[in-house]
């Protein structure tokens, strides 16, 4: 079975935040929640780099390990999803996640946290596929439609790639060698000719 994965090419990401907007708008994400964010280092200086981060859909995900009610689960294809009807909003997943992926909607009574919301890889949730309930709680289910997630689909520089891990890794590897700069400037072809 394919293993779904995001890959953000830092040499291509230009910090346009298009992925953030596409995700937020396309999935009607609750107020106070950003499923995806862009991190920039060395802003305005030579060597500035940006990377778009959402849920990494980890193998052996820490959020699944700490959830006291087993609301988070992983699909066969590696996509980590949350069941919002089981989630109690305790926030343990937020503390366990190295990437700050779990988010909580604000604005409830007494500042209570609602159910956790995070990147679904545009694969909806545990509700019936294409149902209104699924769309209301989790946003679009583009994986079931055979499309890549919104963020990767709209990325103008194609820095953000999503899909089967092997295909994505292969495309990225080709890019790196074609670029011939950075760490791979003096690779096999430079040393041993065109082969």
């Amino acid at each position: 079975m394919a293993r779904m994965k995001f890959l953000c090419d830092v040499e291509r990401c230009i910090d346009c935040n298009g992925c953030v907007i596409a995700c937020k708008e396309g999935n009607q994400v609750p107020v106070g929640v950003n499923r995806r964010r862009v991190i920039t280092i060395g802003e305005g200086k030579p060597g500035e780099k940006s990377i778009s981060v959402a849920c990494m859909h980890c193998s052996d995900a820490p959020c699944i390990a700490v959830c006291p009610v087993d609301a988070i689960y992983q699909r066969e294809d590696g996509i980590v999803l949350v069941n919002k009807k089981t989630c109690i909003g305790c926030g343990y997943c937020f503390m366990a996640c190295p990437f700050g992926a779990p988010q909580f909607p604000s604005g409830k009574v007494f500042g209570a946290r609602g159910a956790m919301d995070k990147c679904t890889f545009c694969a909806g949730g545990p509700e019936e596929t294409f149902s209104d309930e699924e769309k209301r709680l989790y946003g679009q289910n583009r994986i079931a439609e055979g499309k890549v997630p919104l963020c990767a689909a709209m990325c103008a520089t194609k820095a953000l790639m999503a899909g089967d891990a092997n295909v994505v890794a292969d495309a990225y590897r080709k890019r790196v060698f074609a670029r011939g700069s950075g760490a791979n400037a003096w690779g096999w072809d430079k040393a041993y000719g065109k082969k």
């Binding site: 500035e48 780099k49 990437f99 700069s181 950075g182």
Partner: peptide, 18 residues
């Protein structure tokens, strides 16, 4: 600009996002 090795960039990025 832009030709810094990716490993160094990722080390700097990691510090921020993890």
């Amino acid at each position: 600009p832009g030709s810094e090795p990716s490993t160094a960039s990722f080390a700097a990025i990691n510090k921020i996002f993890t």
